[in-house]
């Protein structure tokens, strides 16, 4: 077997690290969105769900999840940064003119889109997890925090913009995972593109519905 260091230094090795941590993060954002749909059922459901997440396996489960996610995020950022630097270095002198044929807006905004998502995640944790930047945070009352948080229009706008960035990232990222991990048989590659669209739209629409529902008074 190759040394793990050799694999992690190689171009494809770093891509595989990015893709496999991406799988963890994609599964997480889907679960996160589905879990939050419980706000449409009123305060009891979502508050009980929040309590469950905090107390499952004597409160250990949430820390396991946090450690796994933090590790995945750090490796994802490390591989993305490292690969970006390699690619930047590979073309010292650029073109005077370059026209795109097959790349998409989503594929060309992966890097800065990722930076936007990172900044949003930091804000999101300070907003709804620690309550540091929340105007009226009540620990344990998920429903109240949710409604009070999204009533602030600029905050809702930040969330909506961030979710569009996340949707674009998922659109290119999900199919890229299949390609990078080598599961891109021509028979299934069409399905990978469809899956990327479905996940990107479902997560974006689901998440954007939350601030909109609060602003529209559907959830109050």
């Amino acid at each position: 077997m190759d040394s793990a260091g050799g694999f992690a230094r190689s171009s494809i090795g770093r891509k595989v690290i990015m893709a496999s941590t991406g799988v963890i993060l994609v599964v997480y954002v889907i679960g996160h969105m589905i879990g939050n749909l419980q706000v449409y059922g009123g305060p009891e459901g979502i508050n009980a769900y929040g309590k469950f997440l905090h107390t499952f396996i004597h409160g250990q489960a949430i820390w396991v999840a946090r450690i796994v996610l933090l590790t995945a995020v750090l490796l994802h950022i490390w591989s993305a940064t490292s690969l970006t630097l390699t690619s930047r270095k590979a073309r010292g002198i650029g073109y005077r003119e370059q026209k795109w044929k097959e790349s998409t807006y989503a594929s060309r905004t992966m890097r800065w889109g990722g930076v936007i998502i990172l900044l949003f995640v930091i804000y999101h944790i300070l907003h709804f997890t620690t309550g540091t930047v929340h105007p009226d945070f009540v620990p344990g009352d998920v429903y109240h925090n949710f409604v009070a948080g999204f009533r602030v229009v600029p905050v809702s706008i930040v969330y909506i913009v961030a979710m569009i960035a996340l949707g674009l990232h998922l659109r290119h990222g999900v199919w890229s995972m299949f390609q990078t991990l080598g599961v891109s048989h021509p028979r299934y590659i069409g399905a990978a593109h469809v899956l990327a669209w479905v996940i990107a739209i479902a997560v974006t629409v689901g998440n954007i519905s939350f601030p909109l529902a609060v602003l529209a008074g559907v959830v109050k």
């Binding site: 795109w100 390609q179 990078t180």
Partner: peptide, 9 residues
């Protein structure tokens, strides 16, 4: 060389 980001160009 650089590293692939699956653009398809």
């Amino acid at each position: 060389f650089g590293t692939c980001t699956n653009h398809g160009e």
